[in-house]
Amino acid sequence: MISVSSTFNAFREELDEHHDRRERLIKASRDITNLSKKTIFLLHRLALDSLTDADDGRRTSAAAKGYANLREVQSLYAGLRNDLAGDRFWRYHQQVSPGLQEYIEALSFTHFLEHRSLICFETVQRSLSDADHVPYLPLTTSDYLLGLSDLTGELMRLAISGIAQRGGRKQAMEICTFVRNCKADFEGFTSHVRDLSKKQAVTSSSLEKIEDAAYAIVLRGSEYDLPPEMLDDIVASTIAQ
């Protein structure tokens, strides 16, 4: 018969291993969050520059830089593969989830800049898989939705900061419609996904900010009986050197 002492010794090893793994994942998650946040800032910078471009060239290259940045995050996930294998993913989901959501936010922002559309579930999952399409971790619907929900805040920033530039007004209108649709689509999920309704409230307030911006655009064009492009040209020539 095994002594109490030796069974508890085995327990100690098991518990220590668990806590060590948990620590590792927490630290990795912090790194992932930071890298993702930096990517989002980078994208805002690039988006601001590319707005005035007539063709989609610079926009695509902005996205390309985003993807390149996020490849680092993906390789971090590849490294966590074993720590998240099998039933471990759900055991450590709480530790992993915040970083995952931030990554999805950054990835979906990149995707939006390239395609002006919502990234689909499959694409996110594929980005977290190896060359043979074997996932590093199973993407959950809740992480997917919560990550996307954060995207609306970044889109609001994009809409407002671009608004003073040529083309920014059109973009703001587009984003307004896009965020409105996001909000409507997500509404049905709120009762199923914890914390989503809190994020929906943030989306609502972002949407209102975009709507106010759209309103201001319409309003200030309304006093002049000229097409918006021509108004833009007059303003541009006033400011320009």
Binding site: I163, A164, A213, A216, R220, I234, V235, S237, T238
Partner: peptide
């Protein structure tokens, strides 16, 4: 945005 609106009005 506010400054732009003023510039717009003025121009």
């Amino acid at each position: 945005k506010k400054i732009e609106e003023v510039v717009y009005d003025v121009s």
